[in-house]
Amino acid sequence: MEDAERERAVTLRVEHGGYVRCDWRRGTRITGELARAAIKRLDELADGRKRPLLVDMRGTASLTREGRQAFAEECSASRIALLGESAVDRVIANFTLSVIVMAMPTRYFTSEPAALAWLIGDDAPA
């Protein structure tokens, strides 16, 4: 997979509030390679710190087993909020959270404000 293709599939940036936002392009099939590239980029952005991570997975087509394994690894995320909307998103998120043991607190949301509140707001876990 070309770098450009990888970059088109996912974008990451540090948002106001210190969390990292990760947007998956709609229709993306998240493979192990793409997952590892995203984590690498996250580590670069986090600059040695642990940061909350909002993953916008709305409209992704699927997540391969290799991709699921990659997300289970320790990374620069202190906790992860998965943001989805469709039945596909719900299946992917819940399946992943039930079959792999995540290295950090991770939850699935269908509302962005609720996700951010859990991630960085007053509701955020200590």
Partner: peptide
């Protein structure tokens, strides 16, 4: 990306 796809995935 509908419910059939959810079952498929």
């Amino acid at each position: 990306n509908d419910r059939i796809d959810a079952v498929t995935v």
